[in-house]
Design a protein around this nucleic acid. Structure first.
Lengths: 240, 240
DNA sequence: GATACTCTGTGGTCTGACCACAGGAGGATC
DNA sequence: GATCCTCCTGTGGTCAGACCACAGAGTATC
């Protein structure tokens, strides 16, 4: 792609990516030890470690000390963590405006609900459990919002698209601190919680009824309503 | 968030994220030197470097040697690169199935076209230039596909949503190697190129005419058509 | 046979040492 | 005084070596 200056850690990264791409390395496999890889590639161990760190934060590998088959660096390919870290940092560094994050969430949520509602074998038992958990009174805003996030995330995962699920998780975590901070801007939290509960119930009901259009309209109102109330976004365009 | 074991490089990462979040650090700002940060945080320089590497790959900072105001680590917040790296590696490690990537691209492309077509002040001059460039005969598949990617990406950027644009760029780059490899599976490349050209022209025309529905239908057919022809995906669900 | 010990290899970290490089400070030159 | 050149400083990039904590396998002991 873009010609990068030949840095040692990039060499390592490219080497591993190549092994991944042609199947020499796959989920569950163990990478060579840092020392071995360093000597094999003719770089220092610190350079290997820098590459490993990138892979770890991106959710590609997990590292463990000690000996045995579970030690060392192992390919795991857990996309959620990496996506969360990336989006969180980019939002923090103002690479992504909050409005765009919310708008994107709207787009993806839309697709999620459409996919679930249209799926013949949708299973919403977990969603119903979360709904019940959120109906418990006297939840703190933090607890409520955590369950809220879990509900939306579980639906995203239920849609069957791992990429969208990971992106949703990332988007959510990227604005989490802002959402938490926005609670104070909501004059009557109890009223807001009641409203969100009702909207969630309606949302899941629409899914159960396979009513795609209703689900879309509901989720749109649901999300925009909360963010504008919390003072996090300006008015969002009707579409996208 | 998830309780991580206290690792030195994580400490650095969290420190920088905190500075980013509360505004002590912003785009264009220079980070302390690696040595200073190391002594300030009470960690080794190698740990600082590991954190910097993560930030660099994620597109948060850029580093430069030498002295002066342009040297050192500078916050840039360029999301595209990081998103591309993340998605590319995750696809390579089979964390993201190819089908999900294509499906997600469909969802986002859909939103892009809807947003552009609905925008009152859309400017498609660059898109038209790219269309003209693609009309040049005797382009190699590689050149053609590169222009194709550029066209779609430019439209995503024109939609005004930086998050979606970055995601589109990432999705594209994550499957680039597969797309290139899939060319050989296409029996008559010239016919395919002709078809893609026609579809692109129709797509941009729909945008110019502000015909959202037509644009959506066209982009859907456009993308699914290519990927199935290249043998990259099974049949994709009609929605999502 | 069960238990306790040692030994090995792993990542995690720190330190110190170079290198190449870019830019500024200061002197030499005109 | 203005210009050019040189040296010096501080930067990231890299490597080598040294510890540490840890987990597991192998071994000795009871």
């Amino acid at each position: 792609m873009t010609d990068q200056p030949a840095r040692a850690w990039r060499l390592v990264l490219e080497h591993i990516e190549r092994d991944l791409l042609n199947g020499r390395l796959g989920p569950g496999d163990r990478l060579p030890s840092e020392r071995d890889l360093a000597t094999d590639l003719g770089v220092g161990r610190s350079s290997v470690r820098e590459a490993f760190r990138v892979l770890e934060v991106m959710g590609l590998i997990r590292t463990a000390t000690g000996s045995g088959p579970q030690s060392g660096a192992i390919v795991i390919a857990t996309p959620t963590g990496g996506m969360s870290a990336l989006l969180r940092l980019q939002v923090a560094a103002q690479g992504f405006p909050l409005d765009d994050v919310v708008r994107t969430r709207l787009v993806l949520e839309d697709a999620v609900f459409a996919a679930i509602a249209a799926a013949p074998d949708r299973d919403t038992t977990y969603a119903h459990e979360l709904l019940a958990a959120m109906d418990v009174p006297d939840l703190t805003p933090s607890e409520f919002l955590a369950l809220d996030a879990q509900l939306h995330l579980s639906l995203a995962e239920a849609s069957g698209n791992t990429v969208i699920a990971a992106m949703m998780a990332g988007l959510r975590s990227s604005i989490e601190s802002y959402v938490q901070a926005g609670v104070v801007a909501i004059p009557d939290w109890d009223a807001m919680a009641t409203r969100l509960r009702a909207e969630h119930h309606a949302l899941v009901a629409a899914i159960d009824a396979a009513d795609v259009d209703a689900a879309r309209a509901l989720v749109h109102a649901h999300i925009t309503g909360y963010y504008t109330s919390a003072g996090l976004t300006r008015d969002l365009h009707p579409k996208n």
